[in-house]
Nucleic acid binder design. Structure first.
Lengths: 147, 147
DNA sequence: CGAACTAGACAGATTATCTGTCTAATATGA
DNA sequence: TCATATTAGACAGATAATCTGTCTAGTTCG
């Protein structure tokens, strides 16, 4: 029978894994010479879908309030990384979309993510990594009330 | 061959799983009537070991600077949840230790963690959950440069 | 012993985050 | 159809969290 302290270890493990990915991706962007984005901005920007995403949805996915998400999107917009367009399906809403100016950052982050997953697969094996992926996907029904 | 966007999904999955655990544990503490702790404080406090932990180590584990960790520990100390004692093995250092006042919070959080893991095990099976645990443990060598 | 390093404190600034309120647009339902 | 409730997002203000930089005391090691 597992103890709370072991349960807690799982939390730590999820945290360090996520944090490691995030930090390395962010560092890769900085290493590519893009230094005018903060971690919090990048976290929100990374949730923007190819066809644009509403601020409310970004807030939900990043688990911050709409106000916080809007604040970060404002900064990304001022720096030219995103633009806001009217949402054709709902006149209240606006879609946030990445601009071409964001492309180098996306590519740097993406390339680093590929490297990370390669290393992880090397370390624990492709099969175990895939199994973990699938388990986390299934758990999402519990861990992600939205979507 | 996986795409960057799939890699990124893993990051999201790790994030939502961790965030779900953290939020539920925190909510359980609040539901137990303990309302004078913030999430950031709880995050640091949860890393304190049974025999006390140095501020520097807490900072490392929570991935914040020493200054931030010290700031949060100050608040926890002012609220009576932790105390600072001299570290007998190093006169520069001080150990942060949880007080009896923290016990109800620890118990509320621990009980919720047990519930969460029970639900997860029900959802994906005990074996798959354990496998994920082991994989994350092995990955820690890559994801957690310290320890 | 002396240089380099480590733990933590102090100061100051910035960033991220929240609660609360407001308007406009949409959805619902009698 | 119209009143009501809900949703998207903006605006204002306050607080919390976080960082960089600097400093002192203590430790380690050649």
């Amino acid at each position: 029978m597992p103890t709370p302290r072991q349960q807690q270890e799982l939390g730590v493990l999820l945290f360090v894994a996520n944090r490691s990915m995030e930090q390395r991706a962010y560092d890769a962007v900085v290493a590519a010479g893009i230094t005018d984005i903060t971690v919090a901005q990048a976290r929100v920007a990374s949730r923007i879908g190819p066809d644009g995403t509403r601020v409310s949805d970004l807030a939900e996915q990043a688990r911050v309030t709409k106000q916080t998400a809007a604040y970060l999107v404002d900064q990304l917009e001022a720096a030219g990384y995103v633009e806001r367009l009217p949402d054709p399906t709902d006149r209240r809403a606006r879609l946030v979309r990445l601009t071409d100016h964001a492309r180098p950052a996306i590519e740097a982050a993406g390339a680093e993510l590929v490297r990370i997953l390669d290393e992880w697969a090397d370390h624990v094996g492709e099969d175990r990594l895939s199994a973990m992926f699938e388990t986390l996907r299934d758990l999402r029904e519990l861990t992600d009330p939205w979507r």
